[in-house]
Amino acid sequence: MRIKRNILFIAIPALLVFAVIGFLLQSGNAVETPGAPPPPVAVDSTKCIAQTEYMRSNHMKVLNEWRHSSVREGNRVYTAHNGSRFQKSLNTCLGCHSNKLFCFNCHMYANVKPKCWNCHLSPMETP
């Protein structure tokens, strides 16, 4: 009887602690709705043109800026924050993010329909 009560004294606070931790973890993860595609993992951070978080929300602006400066001003080389240099080309992006569904996963989930592949060859169409 005494032993059982001791167990209860330990078990109840322990359960409470677990519940609190679990709740905190869940509230932290609440942004990621079930069904969302897993966030893409960068292959090698030394090859990144910018931080993942920045790219996730601003890749379209980067592409727009790259197009403008390379097509109109002839400035075809982009120097990243760590000094590595890249050709401003859609193929620079696709060469590194070689997972064929890299673009489509998120765009399908977010119901975004960019018109890139009306002209550019999509990763799904390349060998």
Partner: peptide, 14 residues
Amino acid sequence: SGFLPAFSLEETIL
């Protein structure tokens, strides 16, 4: 860092 791995699309040479 500057150059990219072999890739089936157009070559990306600086």
